[in-house]
Each structure stands twice: as C-alpha cells, then as structure tokens.
Write a protein that binds this DNA or RNA. Structure first.
Length: 667
DNA sequence: TATGTCCTTTTTTTT
DNA sequence: AAAGGACATA
C-alpha cells in the first residue's frame, strides 16, 4: 500500500484517494482532518503525478498554513513540494491581485490597509460618528462585500434609512480606497471574484495554474470565498472541502454554514465522507463536549467516539475573583507539571476575549512560568512596526494617504492637523494624493512658509528614498531611514524606558529580518515592501517559544490541540458573551465552548469567578449556563463546597507542590 | 499652529 | 487599563 495511505482509517483513506469529483469531508473535532489534507496533498503529488504547483490548500489562518506547509514538507522531501500553494483565502487573493491588478484598474503596487486604517477612513467619511454607528456601518459594509454586493447594489437592497446611509458611506469608502490605490481585507476576497467574472481569460489562467483545491475549515467560509472556490474549480469540482458545522464560529464575520449545504446544490455529484473517530481526546472530554453541543439544533447527531482511555476527570473550579483565577491556574500548572513531569508547552489557557490574557500573563510571570500568547495583537499590529511600514508603504505607493499621514506625523516634525487639513482640502479638489498635492503651486501659494518647508522637507525625503529603493540594498536604506527620522531617540523621549527599549528591540528585529531577506533573495526595498504588505497578513515569525504555556483566544485555538487545557472565565456575559444571549448567536457561543473543550487531549479544567473587574469596576458574575449543560457524570467541582476551609487547605497543598516544583531538581 | 497632558470613555471573536 | 478626544501651553 502507498505510504501516504498508511496508518489511516478506512474513511480517511477513502477521502485521500477519492478524485473522481467534488468531495466534502465532514470531520468531527479531532478526527484527523488536517491529516487527511496533508496526506492527500502528498498523495496527489507523489502518486498521481500532479505537480505541486498545480495544487492549492486553503487554510483559515496563516499560522495553520505554515504548520501545514511544514507537515507536507515532511511527507514530500526534497523538491517535490516546490511551488505548492498553502495559504489563506486572503493571501491567495493578494497573490492573485498583485499579478492582475492592472485589469482591475489598480497599480500592482497597491497598498493593503489594515482594519485600523480602514476604520479611520470610514470615520472621516461619516464625520464624527459615535462608536456604535461606526461599528455598525463598518460591519454592514463588510457584510455587503462578503455577499459580493457592489455599492450600487447595496443601495438598491438597503431597507431602512440607516442602511441607505451606510450604502452611501460604502460608495464613498470604496471611492476613497480607489483613490488611495488601496484595498482592505474584504477586497482581497471580493476583487478576485470581480476579476474572474469580468475577465474570463484571467480565470482561465488561474484555473490551469491551480488544478486541485483543498479547503480546510470549510464551515467558516463566507459567500465570496465560496464563489472563488466555485470559479476556480468550475463544473468539474476538483476540490476537497473539509469542515465541521459544530465548529462554525465565524458567522459574525460573514461565514455561513449554509455553504456546506450549498455544495450539494451546486455539485449534485458531491461525495460526502464523514469522519467520526476521534483520535485526540479522552472519552470523558468527548462525552462532555457532546453533552454541550447536543443543546444546539443540528442536522444530525454526530457520533464522535474515541478509543483513548476514560481520562482524567474534568474539573470545574470556582474562583473568588479574576486575580484569584489567574493565580489558581498558574499554581495548578506548576503543581501538575511537577507531579506529572510534563512540559510547559503541554498546557494551554483559553479564553473568550483578548483582554482576559493580561492577568494570566502577570500570574505566569510571577510564578516564573514561560508563556506564549498566540493570537491577540500580532507583531505587525504593534505601533512601532506600523510606523515603519507606513514609510515603506508610502515609498512604494505615493497615493497611500493614510501612510502619508502616519509617516508625516511620526515622529512629529512640525506637520500638524491644520497643515494636513489644508493639504487634504487641496488634494481633494484636484483629485490627487496628499504626496502629489505638496508639489502643486496652487497649494504652495496659500501656505505659510514654515509649514510648507516642513512638508517639502518630508516629501523630498520620501522622494529621494523612493528613487533609491529599487536599486540599493534594503538593509542600508532602512538603517539610513531610521537614523534620518531619529526614531530611536523619539521613542526614548516619549515613552518610559522599558517600553521604549521593547519597541526599539521589536523594530530592530523587524529591520534585521527585512535586511536579511533582501540580501538572501536579492530583493530591493520596493519588492520587500510588497512582501511586507503580505507579511501583515502572514503574521508569523518563525521563532515560537519551544516550551511555553500557550495563551490563546478560543477563536485562535481552533484547529489546535493540547494535552491539558484550562478553559477560563466561563461565566455568563463572557461565554456566552453579553451580546450573544439568544438565537443563532447563542448557538455560536455554544460551539465556541465546544471548540474549547475539544482542544483538550487528556486534561480539562474549567474555571469561573464569583466576581471580576470589568473596565475598572468590580461586578458579580454567574457561572455560564453551559456548565449546567455538561454531563454531571463527567465533572468534579472544586471551590463550591460549603466548607471554606477545604479550599484553603487544597490551595495550601498546591502552593506547596508548586514551591517544590520551583526548588525542584532544575529545569 | 503644533504638541503634550489630562481626562474621558470603553470591551468579542480575526483576515 | 488603554486609547482617543478636549484643553492648555509654548
């Protein structure tokens, strides 16, 4: 038998081998769906004579893409995997757009705006909107984009007055992006669809390039992503989609589980293979997960089963408050690690919202437990990195007004709000970018000499860099750039020493990485800048702390697994979230709980607090309703006894073992 | 007019 | 507990 089929169960093997038509693999949590995808890639390339460059695997996050690439590399040694595409829909979209930009009236050096830039633009359009309506309009626009509605179509479809206003804002927003030669995240999906619909020859090119598609986490695709899949694979349906409707947790971002059903409508010959054996979790964990998800209305009851042992009891721990919760988890990890000789990396702390991470960070630091946060603020969202990339974006694309504003005012160099407003007015009248407007005589005549000088100094500086950016080594230019703007000094002048140091170190790391890349690949600063726009999405740097407790949001933990999971803050208002108390949204929260539980292999500890600090105020908390849904036979409760002494004694024992762990025989 | 400071508000999840 | 906005200062 082929080595690429070895060790797979019959369903998995069937899923790998099936190539006669479109295939949907309905894979329960932990049933080895990623394994099916990686093996199938290897099988296609090594056994079916399909070149790797004709195969594309789509993952949900860039991190997942990186992991999948690594796994495939192990299965396909040497150059066999060369040219294989493993990326998110967004990265694939970006790659397509860079090549095809001109057909859509964009220049190839268009900028990619992050969410903050996009929101700023929208905020300018709406003229001082309150937070709520800004959010609402932004989310409406996103919904429309994901449903592939153009601004005019959105306006036609708009019902009430709010929606009409939002549709008008959508139009203005899209015009602005066009003027900036910029696209937002949603455009990375939407524009390729527009391209393929309007330019059949472009579609033909990409169809012949990407001949087989594998889509992971299919339940979380949105309408536009589905359309890309449809366009690229055509009536032949050369694809394998893998998904689990119980793990759909991105409806708020336009994902639609309905896409699972739609597959059958669009390809009547769709083959469906369910994977029901779980290879990850103990039976207790599986039963607990099932007992929760059972409360959602589902098409059909899934019968996930496992041959792994019964496993440790699941613990529910009541904590006094959020501080106590963090401390409890830290101590338990210490004690458990000491007792069972595990590694730090065997533990994960999962929570609903990013802000919950802070207290756990503190507690882990205090207890000298190494940790690593995944998700949360990415490297490229850090202010210092965004500052530098603003310069790079501007150098590559002078129409990028948001980049102009950020670069021109960071560090401060005598260009203030009033100057920028005048510049903006003029640029608006003449329909040109801020950078170009600086050099218009009509503008210069009406500006005091001092402000004009500041602007000219800045624009000339950028212009000079841009002129050299295509030829000179990136490293030297970057060093020069940072020295010229005196960024390091500015950091230390404006931040306290600790923060400044950290930021400067981040920036150095970024610059060194860019310089090295420029040298190795012989890329110019301009070319690198295009990669940086991509890197904004490809968030990962390679170095992951090898042995550290993982901290992650539930969303970011999807697809991952850990021997021991701490599911924290499982309270009403948090999980389910305050805004998601009923209907579809509550069901999605339940799936989130389900995802959390099924991340665990052997150990699962769930914590909740009697009260916690919420934005400065202390509020009382109630345990999540999902805790009541857990099968009581599988759980053990702690901290809820009537004898308060028992907790203290238990706590004492834990502290003692934690202490031993620290003093214990080295690390 | 540019900038720094103080004081307000705010919390979902991510590409 | 951080970020953005109003206000005071240079």
């Amino acid at each position: 038998m082929s080595s690429h089929l070895a060790g797979l169960n019959p369903q998995q093997r069937e899923a790998v081998r099936y190539l006669d038509g479109p295939l949907l693999v309905l894979a329960g949590a932990g049933s080895g769906k990623t394994r099916v995808i990686t093996r199938k890639i290897a099988y296609l390339v090594a056994e079916c004579g399909i070149e790797a460059r004709h195969v594309a695997a789509i993952t949900f996050t860039n991190k997942a893409a990186r992991e999948m690439r690594d796994r495939v590399a192990e299965l396909l040694p040497g150059k066999q995997a060369k040219g294989l595409t493993v990326s998110t829909f967004h990265s694939l979209g970006l790659r397509i757009l860079r090549v095809e930009a001109r057909r859509l009236g964009y220049k190839p050096r268009f900028s990619v705006l992050d969410a903050a830039d996009a929101q700023q633009i929208l905020s300018d359009i709406l003229k001082n909107p309150d937070r709520a309506s800004l959010r609402q309009v932004a989310s409406l626009i996103s919904t429309w984009k994901n449903a592939l509605l153009a601004p005019t179509e959105a306006r036609a479809a708009a019902g009430d007055d709010d929606e009409i206003q939002a549709a008008l804002a959508y139009q203005a927003y899209q015009d602005t992006l066009r003027a900036y030669q910029a696209v937002d995240f949603d455009d990375l999906i939407r524009l390729p669809v527009v391209l393929f619909r309007e330019h059949p020859e472009a579609l033909a090119t990409w169809r012949s390039r990407l001949r087989y598609l594998l889509v992971d986490e299919y339940q979380d695709t949105n309408g536009a992503q589905y359309e890309i899949l449809k366009l690229l694979t055509g009536v032949g349906g050369r694809f394998t989609a893998v998904g689990d409707d119980d793990q759909a947790i991105y409806a708020w971002r336009g994902a639609d589980v309905e896409n699972l059903r739609r597959l059958n409508d669009d390809w009547p010959n769709l083959r469906v293979i369910p994977l029901t054996q779980n290879y990850r979790s103990s039976q207790r964990i599986l039963r607990a997960a099932n007992s929760v998800i059972r409360n959602n209305p589902r098409l059909q009851e899934k019968n996930l089963w496992s041959e792994l042992g019964l496993g440790d009891p699941i613990e529910i721990v009541r904590c006094r408050d959020d501080r106590h919760e963090a401390e409890t988890v830290a101590l338990r990890i210490s004690a458990h690690k000491f007792e069972h000789r595990t590694r730090h990396a065997d533990y994960a702390i999962l929570y609903r919202g990013n802000h919950q991470a802070r207290l756990f960070e503190e507690a882990l630091r205090e207890n000298r437990i190494p940790y690593q946060i995944s998700g949360g603020q990415s490297f490229f969202d850090k202010a210092e990195i965004k500052d530098l990339t603003a310069y790079l974006r501007l150098i590559a694309n002078p129409d990028d007004d948001p980049a102009f504003i950020r670069a021109a005012t960071t560090p401060r160099r005598g260009i203030g709000a009033a100057t920028l407003e005048k510049l903006g007015d003029h640029a608006g009248q003449r329909h040109i970018g801020l950078f170009a407007a600086v050099y218009e005589t009509g503008f210069q005549e009406n500006l005091p000499a001092r402000q004009l000088e500041s602007l000219l100094t800045f624009a000339d500086f950028i212009g000079r860099l841009a002129g050299r950016a295509e030829r000179e080594p990136a490293g030297r230019l970057l060093d020069e750039l940072l020295a010229a703007i005196q960024y390091e000094q500015w950091l230390f002048d404006n931040e306290d020493e600790r923060a400044a140091r950290a930021k400067w170190a981040n920036l150095r790391e970024f610059v060194d990485w860019l310089s090295k890349k420029g040298e190795e690949d012989g890329k110019s600063l301009i070319e690198l800048t295009q990669t940086v726009a991509l890197m904004n999405l490809l968030e990962g740097r390679e170095d992951e702390a090898p042995d550290a407790v993982r901290l992650s949001t539930l969303h970011a933990a999807k697809g991952l697994e850990y021997p021991h999971v701490f599911l924290v803050g499982v309270e009403e208002e948090i999980l389910p979230h305050r805004e998601c108390q009923e209907g579809n949204r509550l069901e999605e929260e339940r799936r989130l709980m389900y995802v959390g539980i099924t991340r665990a292999r052997r150990g699962l500890t769930i914590t909740w607090c009697g009260r916690r600090k919420r934005g400065g105020e202390i509020v009382d908390c109630a345990p999540s309703r999902f805790l009541d849904e857990l099968d009581p036979a599988e759980i053990r409760r702690a901290g809820e006894t009537s004898d308060p002494g028992q907790d203290a004694r238990e706590d004492g024992r834990r502290r003692l073992s934690a202490l031993k762990a620290m003093l214990g025989p080295g690390k």
